[in-house]
Amino acid sequence: MPMLTDIPSALGLYRAMLRIRLVEETIADRYAQQRMRCPVHLSIGQEAVAAGVSAALASSDQIFSTHRCHAHYLAKGGDLTAMIAEIHGKETGCCGGRGGSMNLVDPDAGVMMSSPTIGSSIPVAVGAALSMQQRGTGGVAVAYFGDGASEEGVLHESLNFAALRRLPVLFVLENNGYSIFTPLDQRQPAQRPLSDLGRAHGIPAETVDGNDAGAVRAAAGRAVGRARRGEGPTLLVCDTYRQSEHCEPAKVFDVGYRTAAEREEWAARCPLTRLRHQLIAEGILTKEAEAALLRSLRTEVEEAFADADAAPFPSPVNAMEHLHVR
């Protein structure tokens, strides 16, 4: 691994990833209490993708995410308290309890949509990019999606149109290897790399180690630069691994769909551990600084959970509001 040259950025990436990890571990720890009564899809092991991409974006850029949206939302600056309240179904949630964990949005932070239907948010990101191009805002839209969505027709419709109009959009394919229990090699031909999906549409594609936050940030930065210069879309394939299960946060399904050896191999490549070791080895992260960082993040997370617990539930009286905008 090369030496870290931009120390404040490296620390920023580490902080962003650690924050996501602590939030999601807390969700997993407390899920059995039954106060979070919606499906949650954790990004544990995949934090480097969200942190790296967001580090290359401006706050006014927009992201469009999936059912597995916690990391994307938090890395882009989505409000933590509103997220935890949303997962608890509370009125103070980012959607007032209407969406739950899979529909996180925070328009002020540029988190415009999270959609639990696979592939659904991809063309919406392309539409936002069209709007940015039409209005000349200089903004960039990001479509986050997984390896599963790369099998959906709508991805190809979106890639084609984005290439045709040279839209300022970054397609981030977060390949975690599995669609629920089904591995990629049962779903796609091994002889066709995922990056070819972009090249087939004339879109530059780059494959990066999705567990290396610095590499993701660098690649995303190149893509965002191209988009801002009017050079069109990029496909960024980030190879990573879902350390947790598809949905049930506190369980391990030892049913033979993946081996312990595979899990251990990827655990050793954990993006957070890797960057932490590097920061420590290079003397950037001291024990004291790490302890202080953990303290402050844990306090923030505890406060968010406490706020969610204390917040009122939404009233059914208001459930019809905003169905039609007046």
Partner: peptide
């Protein structure tokens, strides 16, 4: 379908 998503994205983003 893709173009409908594009239209929705443009609408959400102010068009």
């Amino acid at each position: 379908n893709g173009m409908t998503g594009v239209a929705i994205g443009a609408a959400i983003s102010g068009q």
